[in-house]
């Protein structure tokens, strides 16, 4: 995913830390954070995933005034009519057929509140495999570089998505 402007905000970091069940005060308590090695509030290692919030076209967020492919009174499910949102989800595997297979981060400098990131995404490799449960698997890689407002590389992210022939139901 790519965003032109991803502001790193203290409140967002606190909420994100709660959502991954991380009570480490370095994510919300400025005074406690001063006693740590980084010396200030920092973002958790997987925080840039939240850049989705700042991607105006992110297909897995309901858009105001647009049809959403999730259910209301009825389960629209993966049979949702081909509205723009549903099409986008089907294409990239957000609906019934696609899942996140791998995620890799390289950290070049600390991610701090107050930074405003911008990112550049490019497609990586694609490959096929045969799954035990889900049939044919189509993998595709995407590489995203996150830069701060001074164009310093902060984090490199490599994401692998997989489209499955059938739902992967074992767990």
């Amino acid at each position: 995913m790519a965003s032109d402007e991803f502001p790193i905000e203290r409140g967002h970091i606190m909420l994100f830390a709660r959502s991954i069940g991380d009570a480490n005060p370095i994510y919300y308590d400025e005074e406690a954070a001063k006693q740590t090695e980084p010396g200030q509030i920092i973002a958790p290692p997987t925080f840039v995933q939240a850049s989705a919030q700042f991607d105006p076209d992110y297909f897995l967020r309901p858009k105001i005034g647009k049809r959403w492919f999730g259910s209301g009174k009825e389960a629209s499910g993966s049979n949702a009519p081909a509205e723009p949102a549903a099409e986008g989800a089907a294409r990239t595997g957000g609906g019934g057929g696609g899942l996140h297979a791998e995620q890799h981060y390289e950290y070049h400098r600390p991610l701090l509140p107050g930074m405003v990131l911008h990112s550049v995404s490019k497609p990586g490799k694609t490959w096929e495999a045969e799954g035990r449960r889900a049939g044919k698997l189509n993998f595709s890689e995407s590489i995203t570089e996150y830069y701060d407002q001074d164009d310093n590389l902060v984090i490199t992210a490599r994401s692998v998505g997989v489209r499955t022939e059938r739902p992967a139901t074992q767990g």
């Binding site: 740590t36 090695e37 980084p38 997987t46 899942l99 297979a101 791998e102 890799h104 390289e106 490599r158």
Partner: peptide, 12 residues
Amino acid sequence: GDGRLTKYGVRF
């Protein structure tokens, strides 16, 4: 420790 990771990658 905080801020010590240089790489972190996983498969689901």
